[in-house]
Design a protein around this nucleic acid. Sequence first.
DNA 1: TCGGTTGTCTAGCGGTGCTAGGATCGCATC
DNA 2: GATGCGATCCTAGCACCGCTAGACAACCGA
Lengths: 192, 192
Amino acid sequence: MSVQERKERERAERERLIVATARELAERQGWDAVTTRRLAERIEYSQPVLYSHFRGKREIIGAVALEGATEMAAALRAAASAADGPRARVTALARTYLDFAARNPAVYDAMFQLDAGLAFATEDTPQPLKDAFAALLENLNEVAGDGVHPGLFTEVFWAALHGLATLTRAGRQPPQDTERRVELLVDRLAMV
Amino acid sequence: MSVQERKERERAERERLIVATARELAERQGWDAVTTRRLAERIEYSQPVLYSHFRGKREIIGAVALEGATEMAAALRAAASAADGPRARVTALARTYLDFAARNPAVYDAMFQLDAGLAFATEDTPQPLKDAFAALLENLNEVAGDGVHPGLFTEVFWAALHGLATLTRAGRQPPQDTERRVELLVDRLAMV
DNA sequence: TCGGTTGTCTAGCGGTGCTAGGATCGCATC
DNA sequence: GATGCGATCCTAGCACCGCTAGACAACCGA
């Protein structure tokens, strides 16, 4: 049994290597540069090996997305718990979200821009994604306002952040006013 | 001169045909299905002809985007001018924006999701894009609130709409609550 | 030591965006 | 009306893509 265990361990290790390499390559040169050939070369295996771990490129992107979702959820919770009072919490939440998107553009793309074949907003949504949404929900609950469903409020807030994140990064909004936009958004949306 | 004029006319006509065909194909089967080969076949010319009109596929997407921007600007202005009072105007604006995105997903992608090589938020931004933004700005001016720069307010409002449009369409937010999300957004953001 | 399974690689399929270079067509001139 | 010349278009092909069939080697248990 020990031999088999070792093999499984090595296999899992290689899978981590694939995901990490894909992420790094995407972050450095964009997802377009992440081809199965290049990825295989970097991990020093042949192309078909990738397909013994993942169904295809989509699933690799999906793996990066889930990794990112886990990190984002943690970052959001950390930021929120370090802030005092509802208003500060919401501001910290928004800043952290946008900061994550700006610092990990490729991961953010994997999560929300590319088709990674992940289910959203359904029962079989992967746990990390649910958890990232939950991290928002937990902290926005208190500022949704009377008679407003917290889930609905979170969706709107999230959408606004997502819009700011993507439009800013794609150069569709001037980057220098980001902070003022965040303040305006929090001012108006959050009932404090 | 008449011969040359006729040729130019035919050339312009063919260019319109390329853009219209690309748009229709993208709307029917998605941008992935818009390959230069397929596009060439549809317009009944060979591939290289496309490159005598456009630098590459990106520029074709860009042409569709500009067409879409013109239409969106018109739709926004029409909706706003048909509404009575600031509150109704903003609501109509938001609904029209989201409706446009939902009805013309491929065009919307060309405008805001794909890299069409267009400049945004600079001097050399193409006029149709400036105009679409202006159509929002004109009608949001009155609800930005005291001391808030209308341009900044428009950016935030636009970002929120963009987030709702993209997340809803990608199945990342439940589609049935769209209307309630719009109402919440307008309620909170617009100062009426 | 052997047989069989498991794992990996080479090679190749049909597709992509894009382009070089040859052929053909239509125009202006003689 | 014949002819030379440009503009126009197409065939063929480049390098690359995601993905896979089938040959091969390495390792395990008996």
